[in-house]
Write a protein that binds this DNA or RNA. Structure first.
Lengths: 201, 201
DNA sequence: GTCTATAGCCAGATAGAC
DNA sequence: GTCTATCTGGCTATAGAC
């Protein structure tokens, strides 16, 4: 098998295991088993558990971050932006549902692993949206709101149902299919809820 | 020293370590050091790491759950309920800021550890609020909304800023003091935001 | 590049003296 | 109840044959 295939198979297996068990709970043996290769090969390709973890973490950020900056940076009316965001971000997370909890846990363990590049990129995109919101408030087009709170609200309502899935599933007494339905509903519900809150009647 | 004091000292130290490192990342030695006792004593009082962890997890749930059910169960107008919830729940979490991330991570690792009692208690309280919301919608007192989405929204906006603190602090470029200020603002902001969204003008 | 075998370490748990 | 010393198992990592 070619180098690249093996390397990719390892990264895929490592992604599965690290994202569900976390850095500390993950076992190199389990990753090797999932990749159908020998444990020694993991070290041959990635040198150490730490380096393999870093590759997985970096990939996770690179899946979540570009879409986020892309949407809030796009030149379009605020309400459209909000609709696009909730729809495509909830869609994206549905395909990678372990990532948010993984990122949150690992970042709480060790906040330093956040890359500068991501923070700066987001900072720039967010500044544009800040201006957009502030201008609309000044022009009386929407109710007064701090852009920071607005974006936290949108992101929180989009992501939280994924990270709190086990507890929400239990207390709302939903099976897997019902919970998936609820997540689907949120693609439009969250946008409507936010727009209702800030629009002038 | 009395049994109870030692047992409590151990539980406090274990809470610190488990909540910041997680079950897998926690070390019995570190807990012993924090409690200023011998490692063997941990096993004398709690038998195993697993049992000590369960005690910590149970305590964490018992700190978060009663307040939650208490507020949503109280007989009072919906808007007051929302205001009380965001204010006192954000206040409570501020005093135990590691708990939400801890619960979320451990529940994703192993969803079975959720106690039945908590789920049932919450289920009962939530049913009352459900009726309240549905009646207000039918009477045209608030905009149409599914009670489930409403409660997810309120809880998400209250808790998310704590679990995503490292990433939000970085991208919003806030130091610790500024971030605390933002959390303080959310006690009223979240309630206002929600009420604006559902109230009829 | 891929495997087997093993080094070396570290953490949870316990035995046993006091 | 509290300590020291130690057992035991499991895990990362590597040496070395092919």
């Amino acid at each position: 098998m070619s180098n690249q295939d093996t390397e990719q198979k390892i990264l895929n297996a490592a992604t599965d295991v690290f994202q569900s068990k976390g850095m500390d709970g993950a076992r190199m043996q389990e990753i090797a088993d999932k990749a159908n290769i020998n444990k020694a090969m993991l070290h041959y390709y990635y040198r150490s558990k730490q380096k393999l973890f870093e590759a997985v973490f970096k990939t996770a950020i690179s899946i979540m971050a570009p879409k986020l900056t892309e949407i809030i940076e796009k030149e379009e009316p605020l309400f459209d932006k909000i609709k696009h965001f909730t729809n495509s971000y909830i869609n994206l997370i549905s395909k990678h549902s372990y990532i948010p909890t993984f990122i949150i846990h690992e970042l709480n363990r060790n906040p330093e692993i956040l890359q500068d590049t991501f923070v700066k990129q987001f900072g720039n995109s967010f500044n544009k949206m800040k201006t957009q919101v502030n201008e609309m408030v000044e022009n009386g087009e929407i109710r007064p709101i701090e852009p920071e709170h607005l974006i936290i609200n949108v992101v929180a309502m989009s992501i939280f149902p994924f990270v709190a899935k086990p507890i929400l599933k239990a207390v709302l007494q939903k099976d897997e299919a019902d919970y998936q339905l609820l997540l689907e509903e949120r693609k439009t519900h969250v946008a409507d809820f936010v727009i209702n809150s800030i629009k002038i009647n």
